[in-house]
């Protein structure tokens, strides 16, 4: 017995046999309009802006990577067992309290 999927494939097979509508020629002046608009767009974005945009993307990527690494280090510090040796901050605070 055929299930839905088999019948769906059968329908797509039958539908594929229908001649597709012919592809019309591009409208008159279409290519010229595209080229003019593409140039207009290119001129509206100066070269320095494109270079700056690329730099910005790389910089953002670098910052994201640094954040991930710092987060990882922070997490490993947090998960590590507490040290028995008092940290520098503790000794400084203790000495301050003794004064």
């Amino acid at each position: 017995m055929k299930d839905f999927e088999d019948k769906w494939h059968e329908a797509t097979e039958v539908a594929r046999q229908v001649e597709p509508a012919p592809i019309p020629e591009p409208p008159h002046g279409f290519a010229g309009r595209i080229v003019a608009r593409a140039k207009e767009f290119e001129q509206s974005m100066p070269g320095w802006f494109i270079a700056f945009e690329r730099f910005l993307f790389r910089f953002a990527g670098g910052v994201a990577l640094a954040v991930v690494i710092a987060g990882g280090l922070q997490l490993s510090d947090y998960l590590a067992p507490p040290s028995l040796v008092p940290t520098v901050e503790h000794t400084v605070v203790e000495r301050f309290l003794l004064l």
Partner: peptide
């Protein structure tokens, strides 16, 4: 397509599309 029994399949390609 939704029938449990497999009847004779339709043949109209345009309708299938």
């Amino acid at each position: 397509m939704t029938a449990a029994q497999s009847d004779e399949s339709p043949t109209d390609g345009l309708a299938a599309r």
